[in-house]
Design a protein around this nucleic acid. Structure first.
Ligand code: MN
Ligand code: MN
Ligand code: ZN
Ligand code: ZN
Lengths: 142, 142
DNA sequence: CAACAGTTTAGAATTATTATAATGTAGATT
DNA sequence: AATCTACATTATAATAATTCTAAACTGTTG
C-alpha cells in the first residue's frame, strides 16, 4: 500500500512540520499493510523498539492528539480505564473481546446499516458507532 | 414508582450492608421518576447538596463500583476524558450531544434492532451498544 | 545563513483514581 | 442489651495518566 511513504507530504498537508519524531511515528503507525488499534502505552513501546532514537512521552501525546485532530487517528473508548486509538479512520464498528482486551474491526457486511429513527432538532449526526462486547462462551455460569 | 423505597432490602439483596452512606446514595440515584446519567463529579455534588452528611470521595467511588458490579449502574464511556454512569441498566442505545456533553437515551423505537452477522468462534455476545454523536447543525463549515 | 515560529524535551504540576490503615458500625452472638 | 467481628467509612497518602512549563532545538522562510 503506502510504500516508501512520503510522510513528509502527509504532515505538510496537515500543516504539521515534518520533524523526525513525527516522521518516525508515521512510519510506526501508517507504514503497514493493515490498520490496527493501540493504546498510548502500546505506541510508546512500539516506538522505542522500532527506533533507536529516544522520544519524549509528551511528544507522543502531542503527536497522537495532533493526528487525531487532523483525522489521521480515531479514538475508541471502551470504558474509563481502556481507551484505544485506531489507524482505521473510516466509519466502522467494533467487537471488543473482554477476555483478551482486543478490539476487532467489523467490516460493512458484519453489521447491517444502522437505521436511526430519532432525530434531535437542530442537531446533525456526526457518527454512529456500534460496540459489541464478547467474551468466552464457556458455560461456566458467571 | 419506587416510592418510600426500601433500599435496605435492595442493598441486602446484593449482599451489601445498608449503611447510611449507601442508603443516601440510593436515595439520590434511584428514588426518582426517571433514570439519568451522571459523572462521579456530578454525583459527589448531588450527594453533598442533597444530604447534610459529609461523605468521603473514596466511599462514592467504592459504592458506585459496588453498584456497577451488582448491576445497579452501567458505565457509558464517551472518550478517555468523559465517562458517565447510567441508572438505566437495561440494554439501550445513546445519543451524545457534543455541544452540551449530554447523554440521551434511545428507546426501542429509535433504532432498529442491530443485526450482527459476524460471529467470533467460542465467544458469546455480552452487549451491543450504539453511540450516536450529534452536534449543532449550523452550516458553519467546521 | 539569519531569524523566527513551531517543536521537543525533562521534569514539574495537575487530575483522577486507588490504596492504606485507623476508626466506626451493622448484624450476629451471647 | 452488651459484646464481638467482619465489613465499611474516612482522611490522607500513593499511584497513574495526562498536561503544563520553560528552556533548548529545528524546520522553514527569505
Ligand atoms: Mn483525546
Ligand atoms: Mn469502573
Ligand atoms: Zn477499528
Ligand atoms: Zn442511558
Amino acid at each position: 500500500m503506502t510504500k516508501n511513504c512520503n510522510f513528509i507530504e502527509k504532515l505538510r498537508g496537515a500543516g504539521l512540520r515534518p520533524t523526525k519524531q513525527r516522521i518516525n511515528m508515521c512510519e510506526v503507525l501508517f507504514n503497514r499493510e493493515k490498520t490496527f488499534h493501540f493504546t498510548i502505552n502500546d505506541l510508546v513501546k512500539m516506538i522505542s523498539e522500532k527506533m533507536n532514537q529516544k522520544i519524549s512521552l509528551a511528544t507522543v501525546y502531542n503527536t497522537v492528539h495532533a493526528f487525531e485532530k487532523k483525522g489521521y487517528l480515531k479514538e475508541i473508548s471502551i470504558d474509563s480505564h481502556k481507551s484505544y486509538f485506531d489507524t482505521n479512520t473510516s466509519s466502522h464498528h467494533h467487537f471488543f473481546d473482554e477476555d483478551t482486551n482486543e478490539l476487532i474491526d467489523c467490516d460493512e457486511s458484519d453489521i447491517d446499516k444502522i437505521n436511526i429513527r430519532k432525530n434531535i432538532t437542530g442537531k446533525k449526526i456526526n457518527s454512529v458507532e456500534v460496540l459489541v462486547r464478547v467474551a468466552s462462551d464457556n458455560q461456566n455460569q458467571k
